[in-house]
């Protein structure tokens, strides 16, 4: 459905070139949910933004293709992209407080989204569609709530509205950037269940960007693990979670706190993620890797095992 090939997004700052996304490739089938995990600064959000070319100065997509319905979105002019954004591909952002306009009613904001892409609908038709989609995301008495402003909703409700806005034009692909990070666990669980259900109902694909492996475990079919702007491991959810191959993925899963009777120490990955301005030579994970040796002085080539991809010298096929 969508194919990302060797995507490179660089930021040209005064201090040097930041390779935020550096040669990322993946493809998503219809109805598939892809989880992108990584720590802050791994380039996962920028990957999401790059797909719909939402990159601002000083950033630029320098290379690669994003093929969606036979067109390369990277090369498409802004005018054409605007027809796709919010329509065939829509995005959900992390913080529902800031992604809604505080001075407009929910109705205005929802209808605006419909109107932009469907100029021939009547006002009533648009209103009904707004009510219908609010019902779908579980907002009680949507007819009345349409007249409300964002501040009259709780955080969880706001995120539901943001989701409804993203779904209102029946998108083929939904990009959700940390959609539940700002929410409490019980609300997070509700939103996650809802998103899974809605993707099934609308047969939309979803790219779920998050730092929380637990969240990805709930929803994703496939998982891409990012580190230093590159995908270091990609595969089916079960494979990644229960049989990780890359030392970083292993560490990331191992260091999650678990139930622990005697308060044993957690496994820890030493050090911190390297600065993208100043990446180490060779494998970016080398300094933190327990298995590193002299081979790791060169960046490993990607190895393919069926659907699975790993970038590590130590993994043998």
């Amino acid at each position: 459905m969508i194919q990302v090939k060797n995507l490179k997004t660089y930021f040209f700052t005064k201090k040097g070139t930041v390779k935020a996304v550096d040669g990322v490739s993946f493809s998503i089938k219809e109805g598939e949910i892809l989880g992108i995990v990584g720590e802050s600064g791994a380039g996962k959000s920028i990957t999401g933004f790059s797909i719909i070319n939402l990159i601002d100065y000083p950033g630029k997509i320098v290379d690669g293709e994003v093929i969606f319905e036979g067109e390369n979105l990277v090369k498409l002019p802004q005018k054409e992209l605007e027809k796709i954004r919010g329509n065939k591909i829509s995005m959900i952002f992390q913080d529902p407080q800031t992604s809604l306009n505080p001075v407009l009613t929910i109705e205005r904001q929802l209808i605006e989204t419909i109107y932009y892409h469907n100029k021939n609908l009547t006002k009533d038709e648009m209103r009904n569609r707004a009510i219908e989609v609010l019902k779908k995301v579980g907002i009680p008495s949507p007819e009345k709530r349409l007249k409300n402003y964002p501040h009259q909703f709780s955080g969880g409700m706001k995120q539901r509205i943001v989701i409804s806005m993203a779904l209102i034009n029946n998108p083929k692909l939904l990009i959700a950037d940390e959609p539940t990070t700002a929410l409490d666990v019980t609300i997070q669980a509700q939103i996650l269940i809802l998103m899974k259900k809605l993707c099934r109902d609308y047969n939309s694909s979803l790219i779920l960007i998050t730092h929380d492996i637990g969240v990805v475990a709930q929803l994703a079919d496939n998982i891409a693990v990012m580190y230093g702007g590159k995908i270091v491991e990609y595969g089916k959810k079960e494979d990644i979670l229960y049989n990780p191959l890359h030392p970083y993925t292993k560490g990331l899963i191992e260091c999650l706190p678990k139930y622990n009777e005697d308060k044993k120490r957690l496994y820890q990955i030493k050090g911190v993620m390297p600065n993208l301005l100043n990446l180490p030579e060779g494998c970016y994970f080398r300094d933190r890797c327990p298995e590193a040796d002299e081979r790791c002085i060169t960046y490993p080539e990607e190895k393919k095992i069926g659907d699975r991809r790993v970038s590590c010298h130590k993994v043998t096929i």
């Binding site: 969880g156 669980a189 269940i193 492996i213 475990a217 979670l241």
Partner: peptide, 22 residues
């Protein structure tokens, strides 16, 4: 609260949580 925690050992959230309100 416990059942709402996304966990890699428990990868299916209970749908009854949808009724749990706020």
């Amino acid at each position: 609260l416990f059942s709402a925690v996304p966990d890699i050992e428990n990868p299916v959230l209970n749908e009854s949580l949808l009724k749990a309100g706020e």
